[in-house]
Design a protein around this nucleic acid. Sequence first.
DNA 1: ACAGTGTGGTAG
DNA 2: ATCGCTACCACACTGT
Length: 978
Amino acid sequence: MSQDGGPSESSFRDYMSTLEDDELIELITSWSQKRKASSPKAADINTNDADQPSHSSSLSFQLAQEDNEESVDDLGGDDKGPIFGDYASYFATKAQNQQIEDEKFLEWNKKRQQVQGQDTKVSSIFTGCVVHVNGYTRPSIATIHKLIILNGGKFIHHLSSKGAATHIIAERLTPRKQAEFKNYKVVRPQWVLDSIERGSLQRWSDYSLIEVDYGQQRLQFRNEDQTNPHAKQDDEDESEIGPSTEPMSEIVDTTDGTTTIDSKHPDFLKQFFAKSRLHHLSTWKADLRLEFLNMVIEQSKSQGHMPTGASHRIIVHVDFDCFFATVSALKRPDIDFQNQPVCVSHGGTKPGSTADIASCNYVCRKYGVKNGMWVRQAKKLCPDLICLDYDFLGYETASKKLYEILLGLKPDCILPVSIDEALLEISSLIDDENTVEQVQGFCESLRREIYEQTRCTVSVGVSHNVLLAKLSLRKAKPNGYFYLHENFEEFLHNIPVSSLPGVGGAIVNKLISQVFPHSSSEITIGEIQGLERANLEKVFGVKTGTKLFEYAHGIDHTSIDINSNPEAFTRKSISIDINWGIRFDSIAQIDEFLFRVSEEICNKLQLMKMCTSQVTLKILKRSKGAPIEPPKFLGCGQCDSFSKSSRLGIPSDDYRTIGMEARILFRNIGCDPLELRGVSIQVTKLIEKGKEVQMRLPFARLDAPKTARLEGKEQHSDTPMEDKSMETTQLEIPSELDSSVLRELPSSIEKRIDAQRQRDKAPIVDLPRDIDAQVFEQLPPSIQEELRSELRRRNITIGERTPKRKRVYYQQVFTRTGASEVIRIISPRKSPSKSPLKKSPTKKSPVKDVKRRETKVAKVDEDVLNELPPSLRKEILEEWDEYERTNMTEFDRLRERGKLPETKFHNSANSIESLVMDDFECKINLIMFQKTSQPSKIIKLVDRWMKKTVEKGPHHRDLELFQTYLSKLNIIAIHCMP
DNA sequence: ACAGTGTGGTAG
DNA sequence: ATCGCTACCACACTGT
């Protein structure tokens, strides 16, 4: 469970960063209390085994990573350290309490057996065993825990000191863990099951995990390969998979940052992006587009845009020849680039390498080597292949020079296609006389200048539209020039269709299978020319069909003029995809990763000063039958992809909001952590930051005139689409909300309120986000200092009051998911009589109601789900679905009633009481809301809050959300605490 | 008819 | 070892 956050192995700061705010506050408080030695109660915080701090979402991205070596001992070694204990001893106390809990459980179980007349003899299979579980296991950690203690063993959640555990149970170990646990008896879960089934302790070595090293795992998946011969790409050499590949134990050391790290490592994203060519390509492109867009906007401000009215456009396509290879070779004067086969790839020229070839020169291509090919394959085609390193900086430098030169030519417009490639229109630079010569002169001098400045060759293709310019470029390469100005059909005739922009493998395959089933050779554009337009549209759809038809006849209307339609060139989505190195053991790790990705997304959003209102999560899941480890090292192998999206009630650029949404979507899609191979988060429906604040439905303040309600909409009738989508309810906090009520709310809701208040510039009444100053002062100065920065970062103040919240397992359910539930988009039910605003010119209709299927998992605590085997997880989710279906009618009815103006608050309250009370008591002791487990008290809390807001705004909806939420907690209790 | 969702394809 | 990204378009399908 805590493989990455265990207190005994990570630095204090890292650990601290993984805590939720209130966990942090709690920890500080517990130290102080211990120091004062006045209250042994400090220890009974967090006794619930499921409430692992390491499950908390990581905020570590914002934390400096440089002090990783700082250890527990450093803390303890502080002059006054041992008096306080450290966080390790905090957990030791926790562990003691765990033992007490376990004993209580045994006691209880005994009684139960007595009552049921069962044999109460205590099994002693595991007597003397102290068991710890690492990572995701089947059966779950909770099950193993129970089995161990019911059979005389001890269970510990943390390896607080070496040797504390006699056995570690795991299904999978990271190389690092493998090294760490090498002195433990690390066994598979089956050891537990078999021991119980056979009634005696089985030999641990028969179940040892560490002895089964990667060599054997290789054998295992080789077997899988053999049983599933189709799981692999045909063109790959089968014999290279298996024992012949070097053992993976080489990568054990992951500490120095230069060796491989996979997706569990906090620096994975950074490292991955730093070395990913495709990431660079995408980023460069986006940056260039933005740069040129801004440039154009600046220009048109000063001098207004004059459209290029030329009827015969002249489009120039400039492109470096095998860019990466050429630039990388600049650093290697020893290489004869014109005569030696050179390519760019990661990591040397090992014959078995699965590294992609990013770029190869024309010598390579003679051997059949292609970009994207694996080095090992290319080596076979061309044994003398020279592999060069990437030189991302060099690429950027060369590109910069290219674009400087292009800008200096003052063409009509420039459209960056990529780092090494641009489209220009030069129509107005060329006279009608001697056009061909002029164009040639222009292009050849351009080519010369670029070569002089970068020592790299470019090719140039020219024609009267983008399509033909691109095809001309193809003909011009390498290091050449071609101007296509006549005989277009003839030119096109023998070119393969796959050369057409937008025509890739899928379309070619479709052409072969559905249009030219008898053709044996490569299909050419000439063959497409002979087809009816309608025919193509039937096979490929209207757009693609038309495009194919027109392209085949040399027709292309693509515009490269940013100025004529800047909107078309502005970014409409942001996404991050990681489909390499994704290997997880548990959903907790995935959650952390999703937050890291979200953080990156939000960084981009914030740079653009944008907010998003739609989040999409896409995952890759290992295909059934595909090998666990694909041929490509840490690759995703053959996968199935799944995606789900979700609307945000309030547009956001907060990584926690996006990350939470992603976590929910992940659960909604459902994927065994071990099977996950790719993750992608995309945000769309971007809205300018600042606008989104006004777009919130401005519910009237108690002291505000009612007319304020529509203000937001009217102000933004110029962005009607988003306006419509924003017709949502959200948590609206009246300005004079009683601070005592606020204090009772879960912390996540508090944060929302806090944020909202800051936006609204409302005075903060008395938020409980602070730490008792006295408590704080009890801490040693070094810790104080460390804490201060962390607290400042979190905007937690050191105040007067001691936080009274105690974290209880089920409270967490409420805190984490309740808040997320409350702020989720809840559109008003479409009413028969539409408001005049809805008849505004746009065609867009209001967003439909939240898709409940998507949100259902929001209410199931992630930690609970985490611990469940996938089959059980599925079962619970299905049960959920069923529950949602049956419950929605009541929900809707309530909501409908809430719409009536004469509805009084207490009506709703009554409904709630009747609903919540129903069949609730039996489990209610498990569901803590703040300090109380009594439903009536919880309801009163909400009630008080609601009454404050009854006059204004549709707050009853929020109340109803609480109501459904509470009911759902009941279901959680039923399912998760058998 | 129209809009939203999920999936797939493409380029460099 | 190895870094299989990402913006955008189009389509099939569903629901209203």
